[in-house]
């Protein structure tokens, strides 16, 4: 069979996802995550009476803990399948990626499994973030001067 024909048959039988529905769900869930973040920042800065900058750090730590815990309990995967980018783009997606890799590779041993594979999914975020921040920082020094 020709390759192009085969590709066409595969494309016909791939289940079609409702793109409008997906976008709407991820918009609403992502927006709700933003509201939760803002609520946590205001709650922390009110109850601990700390500046907003520190409260936002506390908020990020809280969200990462929630992401790790819910991934461990097993129902975060279903939520991600439902909301897709609504939960992947917020910082919970980063926690989800690290926690999934940690749980998956732990049975292969502590050092060779858990230690060397924990960043398997989330490492690209840190690596590309650092490299791009370095290049953009150099550009900024050259253009604006610090």
């Amino acid at each position: 069979m020709e390759k192009s024909k085969y590709k066409q048959i595969v494309a016909n039988h791939t289940p079609k996802e409702n793109r409008l529905y997906n976008s709407l769900i991820s918009f609403i869930v992502g927006g709700a995550m933003g509201i939760i973040g803002q609520l946590l920042i205001e709650a922390y800065s009110y109850y601990f009476s700390i500046p907003t900058a520190y409260a936002s750090t506390f908020m990020i730590i809280t969200l990462i803990f929630i992401g790790c815990l819910f991934t461990g309990l097993g129902f975060f995967d279903k939520w991600v399948n439902f909301a897709k980018c609504g939960l992947i783009i917020p910082i919970t997606g980063f926690a989800h990626a690290m926690m999934s890799a940690a749980m998956e590779y732990r049975k292969e041993g502590l050092v060779t499994g858990l230690g060397s594979n924990m960043f398997k999914l989330a490492g690209s975020v840190i690596i590309f973030g650092v490299v791009s921040a370095y290049i953009f920082g150099l550009l900024r020094i050259l253009v604006i001067g610090g």
Binding site: S26, I28, G34, Q38, C85, I88, I89, P90
Partner: peptide, 22 residues
Amino acid sequence: IYLNAFIFCGIICLIGQIILDN
């Protein structure tokens, strides 16, 4: 600021979803 937070975070996720789908 809650409305702004909803709109901005939602739009970022929406852009991601559109890229993921298409």
